[in-house]
């Protein structure tokens, strides 16, 4: 966020973003002492900017605009190493999750569309089958992201080991799973993925 572009509301309240994160996740980023232990243990931080501790600071700087274009929380694998080791007991993973949600709620384009697409087809598969139909998820993602042969070479090996089935296996009570997802969605009032990919 450059100072001139900030909205009137943000200008009035320099803590707007921090307070929004607190309200949504219960986590107060203001507790962060910038020790960097989250970044030190993060498996994706070597390849992604900004780093987790920088994300914490961007929230404190009320810089939603930079965060809208940030890729960190799209690559976040939710391994929770940061959360487990944070000396200030901030659930950093929850903050990352909340940021994903905020970006989508604000109608923003996720900086990593492919990741958001995968999230979406993953949940869709879960809703349809009550569990993940891996082959379907991969094909769906590849078609939606326009990279049909992505990871294709992994297929035969996984197929040979019986890790990849060609047909989905539904759980017995998949309607219940579906209801759980619907309910969670009502709670969060937000779609789990980006607007539908073109061509659907």
């Amino acid at each position: 966020m450059t100072e001139h572009e900030s909205t009137a509301e943000q200008e009035r309240n320099p803590h707007a973003l921090r307070e929004r994160i607190l309200a949504l996740s219960g986590e107060d980023v203001g507790r962060c002492i910038q020790c960097g232990k989250c970044t030190a243990g993060c498996p994706v931080a070597p390849d992604v900017q900004p780093t987790p501790n920088q994300v914490m600071q961007l929230i404190r700087m009320n810089d939603l605009e930079t965060l809208m274009g940030a890729s960190m929380f799209w690559y976040c694998s939710s391994c929770q190493t940061c959360t487990a080791r944070c000396p200030m007991e901030i659930d950093i993973e929850a903050v990352m999750n909340t940021l994903r949600r905020l970006v989508l709620e604000a109608g923003g384009e996720p900086a990593e569309k492919d990741v958001a697409t995968l999230n979406k087809v993953f949940l869709r598969s879960l809703r349809a089958h009550g569990r993940i139909f891996e082959f379907g998820v991969v094909m769906n993602r590849n078609l939606r992201t326009g990279k049909p042969l992505r990871d294709a070479m992994l297929g035969p090996a996984m197929f040979g080991k019986g890790k990849l089935g060609l047909r989905p296996h539904n759980v017995r009570q998949r309607k219940k799973i579906k209801r759980i997802i619907e309910k969670a969605r009502r709670f969060e009032r937000v779609e789990p993925g980006p607007p539908d990919a073109p061509g659907e």
Partner: peptide, 12 residues
């Protein structure tokens, strides 16, 4: 030792 250099913004 897996640490971070928060000044350059990367794990080290």
């Amino acid at each position: 030792v897996r640490g971070a250099d928060t000044l350059t913004g990367r794990p080290v």
